[in-house]
């Protein structure tokens, strides 16, 4: 799994799609189908061991590329990684202290609700956070649309927009992780 993640350099290229956030679902399904035909196990039934294993690998990578691209957040992460704005594995340099403070307060409330087993409050927060995540995804869509209108040579503007998307994706991640905590506490 980890090895294949490393080899998945560009899920768009793997499926023969243009690098763009807006992907038409039908195009994605069609691209996956077309690429799968090439590596389908049936075609390698009589081939040697090495060729069969390679085909299996290729199929796994194709399926993974498909899974990445059909999920808007993973798709956005893939685009940002390709553009050199990969998610930091250590300290977050994109989120403002104000946002982190808000997250801190939210996590504090959630921890208290979990301690006191306030199921109704937890459910309400879970719902609220899901809405926040959707809002963030909408903002990400808008930002990618803005990017489309920017000339590829205008690096300053592109960098600014990529940074903005990076911050939005990070925010979604804090919300998701907190929401997962709530889910575990819900009966």
């Amino acid at each position: 799994m980890e090895a294949s993640m490393l080899r998945q350099a560009d899920p768009f290229a793997r499926l023969g799609l243009l690098r763009a956030f807006r992907v038409v679902e039908g195009d994605l399904v069609e691209a996956h189908r077309a690429a799968s035909l090439r590596w389908h196990p049936d075609r390698f039934a009589l081939a040697g061991e090495a060729a069969r294993l390679q085909a299996e690998d290729e199929m796994a990578l194709l399926n993974e590329a498909f899974d990445i691209l059909k999920d808007p957040i993973r798709r956005a992460e893939a685009l940002l990684t390709l553009e050199g704005f990969r998610k930091s594995e250590t300290t977050d340099m994109s989120s403002s202290p104000e946002f982190l403070m808000e997250m801190m307060e939210l996590k504090e409330q959630v921890a208290e609700d979990i301690r006191e087993n306030r199921q109704e409050a937890l459910k309400a927060k879970h719902q609220e956070m899901m809405c926040l995540e959707w809002d963030e995804i909408d903002r990400i869509k808008t930002a990618f649309d803005q990017l489309e209108a920017v000339a590829r040579t205008d690096n300053d503007t592109r960098t600014r927009i990529f940074r903005q998307i990076r911050a939005l994706l990070n925010q979604i991640n804090y919300l998701r992780k907190t929401r997962e905590e709530i889910s575990r506490a819900l009966i």
Binding site: K87, E89, T178
Partner: peptide
């Protein structure tokens, strides 16, 4: 105040 986006 710092955060780690990967683990939240």
């Amino acid at each position: 105040i710092v955060g780690a986006p990967e683990c939240g």
